[in-house]
Design a protein around this nucleic acid. Structure first.
Length: 873
RNA sequence: GGAUCCGUAGCUCAGUUGGUUAGAGCGCACGCUUCACACGCGUGAGGUCGAUGGUUCGAGUCCAUUCGGAUCCA
């Protein structure tokens, strides 16, 4: 055989394996992608070439969940589409290791606790084994604690990175950040200081929601209402004239903290009392009866105690009616030990002694007991269930405690700003669009500014100090702020600028702020952190505002809203132009998946069983915003599709399809067969629709369109052209089909690439150079010059399935010969069938077909099928 | 109490601006060792689109009421 045989100019059968399989593709291709630096961000790109994604940083100390695979795949699919469309995709990923889950994990793992008053010990090493008793744990400085956190979370983060890599996320792993690292802490403090200087952050001594277990203030966004049993207690206040005014309350223990009674201004029952005073039972404190529209005439007796403070409604009344403060519950959740000075009646003072120092629960029992003893309780308490506010991580009801805290203006106390933030929401394209109303709902329901200080030890310190006057009293009005170049700072161990450490806590010296920032105050800055804000502002302008924020709908009120607030005040901009909101993963029985129910599926196990592409298929078949069941059935379908793609591609390539057969340019004369032109015309439509849907963030419909084309391609088209492809009808007819097959394969691989990155790239590497993920997204115009009629495919498909049906009905093999058959239908359809008649006959082993153009016929019918004797096959 | 989403075949879901006979996959039934694929192929049976009323020549699609499920906020 001569080496210069003419066949050599056309490469035959590239590297197609004998038995293609999905197993092993993940490791092989991930290694290749990494070596090829396929997903590295091109930092020289200009803003209009960039597509930037503000990816959610997972809590690495939390557990891995199928929900991670679901939502992160959806984002990756969109990232891959944009990349193929020619965008330079900025797709970083961070780790949220700054928060309570990490704090707890580090404590328990090492047996340490954070005590900001401890000095930093550069040589500290944690105990080999955590001490059994928490009392014996090492108390270490915040800086030492953060160092331990950084050490431990690195290991947790590796596990996540491995999963995400296995999932095929096209993240640029060089662009990672951690919300507790130096850059993130500096960014968080910098943003805080900018907000302080612009007046968007301020400190105030005010009633705030307080968790007595964690001993920290809590923001509105962290509330959770839980239904709890309770009871209405009914007892009377008394007017000067001796009239009894009954109130009903679920919190009788707050009676000594009562500052007024309140009823609705239009409530006829109480008109005569407004402005008068009444005397409280047990404590004999005189309080005024006030009118306010928040009092609900339907609730209890329609008249309520205002106490400072039972809940946030009390705070509203207190503020709007300008009432005195009579706070009794302390930060430990206990009643004040000192008898308050506003109780002057001797009997009242003795009564209070029975509450002093008690917990809320015991105080309630004591007050009820006192009321009973004095026969003041009207009837038995009415048992009810009512909504009680809890901290989302806490297990005791929240109290309201007055304390000095830091706030960021978020429109909760300012209608103008609220409108601006709603306006920002309208500058964002929401996917799905109805998610915007959740945002607006939340903004409209805000009742105070964002409380950002937390009385925790671990977190980003609030970077301020306070001067102490000659008597040692701190000056909260004029905090000492660091210079930005000093950041990050820790006021608990770094001295205030201009002071030496010896002056800490000394009159005339300073004290450091002890509180840390709410974790959302840092994670609301992910665009700035990942985008190197103020570290590399040239870079920042290439990515900000971002193109996309993907996230779950449960954190619209927290992460999403907080990010908008920060971008609004820091940059007078939206943080991103699109928000893609993923749904939740539900059990197959439609219950929310949760760890406590023991129904969590382990991601690695699922990937082992079905393969990454199959799992991605499941995730990508769900629309954004749709809560989706964990469906293994759906993964099996995805697996089937991926395997089919391998096999069909192998078949086409073994027929001799090569890169040279892929049509490019305007010369389509090789397509001599109408059937082949019809296929590619339909493909052009598919490309057009898939592109449209992808661009509208509807990857699920893009997949559907592509998938449905692909299956009809393998089931009908490939079956029809097999004979011709083998050369049964000569070189020209064969060249036509090879061009159609090559072009279809080329486009289909690209169309599926964002969703099935492994199978598509595997096939790509069999016959092409590079990676499919480095290729351009297909254009319908590439197939524009082809004069084909897609209706031909439908007509031929009808004929094909009619002939198959005849064999199926006769229960014979599909390769049984047809001696003759009659196909009738509308003229146009019959003409189409006639133009592909030889392919139809070859595919159905029909010796002769009679095509009848029926006058007025509406559909294609296949009749008079005469089959050969099956035995003679 | 306010807001939002959902209700289409046994199951999971598509059905763009209202337009012939409502689609897919799974499952089910009946067949087929067809030379890419038995991790496969072919064929078929399944639905008065939650209910009622309205707008319209025409409603799964728009409006109102209502029932059921879910979520967010108060």
């Amino acid at each position: 055989m001569g080496t210069d045989a003419p066949e050599q100019s056309r490469p035959v059968t590239p590297n197609v394996p004998e038995k293609p399989a999905l197993e092993g593709l993940e490791d092989k291709l991930n290694a290749a992608w990494q070596a090829e630096r396929l997903y590295h961000f091109d930092e020289s790109a200009s803003r209009d070439e960039v597509y930037s994604i503000d990816t959610p940083p997972p809590t690495a100390s939390g557990s891995l969940h199928v929900g991670h695979m679901f939502s992160y795949t959806q984002t990756d699919v969109m990232a891959r589409f944009q990349r193929m469309c020619g965008k330079k995709v900025f797709y970083p990923l961070g780790w949220d290791d700054n928060g309570l889950p990490t704090e707890r994990r580090v404590q328990n793992y090492y047996g340490v606790r954070c005590d900001p008053s401890q000095p930093y010990d550069p040589d500290y090493t944690p105990p080999a084994k955590p001490a059994k008793n928490q009392r014996d744990w090492d108390a270490i400085s915040r800086r030492n604690f953060i160092e331990l956190c950084e050490k431990l979370t690195v290991e947790d983060e590796k596990v996540f990175e491995d999963l995400f890599t296995r999932l095929g996320l096209s993240v640029d792993w060089r662009q990672t950040y951690r919300t507790i690292d130096d850059d993130s802490r500096a960014a968080s403090q910098r943003a805080f200081l900018r907000d302080v200087r612009s007046g968007n952050a301020y400190t105030a001594d005010a009633p705030t929601l307080w968790d007595i277990t964690f001993r920290t203030a809590v923001a509105q966004a962290e509330l959770e209402a839980k239904e709890r049993p309770g009871a209405y207690y009914r007892y009377p206040f008394t007017t000067a004239a001796g009239e009894k005014v009954f109130i009903e309350t679920t919190r009788p223990e707050l009676l000594p903290a009562c500052v007024a009674l309140v009823a609705h201004p239009e409530d006829e029952r109480y008109q005569h009392l407004f402005g008068q005073t009444v005397t409280s039972p047990l404590f004999s404190v005189e309080v005024e009866v006030k009118a306010h529209q928040l009092a609900d005439p339907e609730k209890g007796s329609g008249i309520a105690m205002i106490c400072t403070f039972g809940d946030m409604t009390d705070v509203t009344w207190w503020r709007e009616l300008q009432l005195p403060t009579r706070a009794l519950i302390g930060r430990d959740g206990r009643f004040a030990r000192e008898t308050p000075e506003w109780i002057t009646d001797e009997a009242g003072r003795q009564h209070y002694q029975q509450l002093a120092g008690k917990t809320v629960h015991s105080a309630k029992e004591a007050v009820v007991e006192l009321l009973r003893q004095q026969d003041l309780l009207d009837g038995e308490p009415t048992q009810i269930t009512h909504a009680v506010h809890f901290y989302e991580k806490g297990d005791k009801p929240l109290e309201v405690v007055t304390s000095r805290q830091w706030y960021i203006r978020n429109g909760g106390r300012d209608a103008g700003r609220r409108e601006e933030l709603i306006g920002r929401g309208r500058q964002i394209d929401w996917h799905p669009s109805f998610m915007r109303s959740r945002y607006e709902n939340w903004v409209e329901g805000l009742n105070g500014d964002w409380l950002i200080s937390r009385q925790r030890f671990f977190g980003v310190p609030i970077p301020v100090w306070y001067r102490l006057d000659e008597d040692g009293n701190p000056d909260y009005e004029e905090p000492i702020l660091p210079e930005e170049h000093q950041l990050p700072v820790d006021p608990s161990s770094d001295p205030a600028p201009g002071y030496s450490e010896e002056l800490r806590g000394v009159p005339g010296g300073f004290i450091g702020e002890q509180d840390v920032l709410d974790t959302w105050a840092t994670s609301s800055l992910t665009p700035q952190i990942a985008g190197r804000w103020e570290r590399d502002n040239e870079f920042f302008t290439r990515v900000f505002p971002y193109d996309l924020r993907p996230q779950g709908h449960d954190i619209i009120r927290t992460w999403l809203f907080a990010t908008v607030v920060r971008a609004h005040s820091l940059h007078e901009s939206v943080p991103w132009t699109n928000a893609a909101i993923s749904g939740w993963i539900l059990d197959p029985d439609r219950k929310k998946m949760s760890k406590s129910k023991g129904n969590v599926v382990v991601p690695d196990d699922v990937l082992d069983r079905f393969g990454t592409d199959a799992v991605r298929y499941w995730a990508a078949s769900a629309k954004l915003g749709a809560d989706t069941a964990f469906e293994e059935a759906q993964m099996k379908i995805g697996r089937r599709l991926a395997i089919k793609l391998l096999n069909a591609s192998k078949f086409a390539l073994n027929l001799g399809v090569t890169e040279a057969h892929v049509l490019s340019g305007d010369d389509v004369s090789v397509l001599t067969e109408p059937l082949d032109r019809a296929l590619l015309s339909r493909l052009a439509t598919v490309v057009e629709q898939a592109t449209e849907h992808f661009a509208a963030y509807d990857y699920a419909r893009a997949l559907q369109v592509t998938e449905s084309f692909f299956w009809s391609f393998t089931d009908d088209y490939v079956e029809l052209v097999k004979d011709r492809a083998y050369g049964a009808r000569g070189e020209q007819a064969q060249a036509s089909v090879l061009a159609a097959l090559a072009t279809t394969l080329d486009k289909v691989l690209r169309l599926f690439a964002p969703i099935l990155p492994f199978a598509t790239d595997e096939v790509w590497r069999w016959w092409r150079t590079g990676s499919v993920h480095g290729q351009a997204w297909p254009q319908a115009e590439d197939l524009g010059g082809i004069d084909g009629d897609p209706a031909l495919l439908d007509a031929v498909g009808e004929a094909l399935s009619g002939l198959r049906r005849a064999k199926s009905d006769a229960k014979v093999k599909q390769r049984t010969e047809i001696l003759s058959a009659r196909i009738a239908g509308p003229a146009q359809a019959v003409e189409h069938i006639a133009s592909a008649q030889q392919d139809v006959q070859a595919a159905t082993k029909a010796r002769s077909l009679e095509l009848v153009s029926g006058e007025g016929a509406e559909e294609i019918t296949v009749t008079d099928v005469e089959l050969a004797d099956p035995e003679q096959v």
